[in-house]
Simulated assay, not measured.
Amino acid sequence: MNLKAVLSLGALAATGFFVFGKDKFSEYSNVLENLKMDIKGIRNISFNREISFKVDVQISNPTNISIDIPGNQLVIKNLHFYTLSGKKLGTAFPNIADINLPANNYRLITNIPVSLSMAEIGNNIAEILDIIGDKDKLKIAADIEAFGKSFTINA
Rank of each mutant, 00 (worst) to 15 (best):
I112R: 07
R49G: 15
K87Y: 13
A5W: 06
N48F: 10
P62S: 07
S115I: 07
T91N: 05
G10E: 14
I99D: 04
A5V: 12
R43G: 04
K87G: 07
Y82M: 00
I131P: 05
A92W: 00
T110I: 07
K87C: 04
G86P: 01
S46T: 13
T63S: 06
M118H: 12
Y106W: 08
M118W: 04
K88P: 12
N48Q: 11
L108Y: 01
L7H: 03
N48G: 11
P70N: 01
A103F: 05
M118N: 08
K54H: 03
S26G: 14
Y82L: 00
A141G: 05
L74E: 05
V19Q: 08
N44R: 04
T83Y: 01
K4D: 15
L89W: 03
I45H: 11
S60Q: 03
V55C: 07
A155D: 14
M1H: 13
R49K: 12
K40C: 08
A97G: 08
D130Q: 09
F18H: 11
K149A: 03
K135R: 14
V114E: 09
I51M: 14
V19W: 06
S52D: 11
V57N: 03
I153E: 05
E27H: 04
N95F: 11
A11T: 10
F18P: 01
L129T: 15
G16V: 13
S52Y: 03
M37E: 09
I39M: 02
A14I: 10
D23M: 08
I112A: 11
E145S: 07
T15M: 12
P62I: 00
N123T: 13
L32R: 08
G133K: 01
N95R: 02
I132H: 08
Q58N: 08
S60M: 02
F151K: 06
S66W: 02
R43V: 12
K24A: 13
D23K: 04
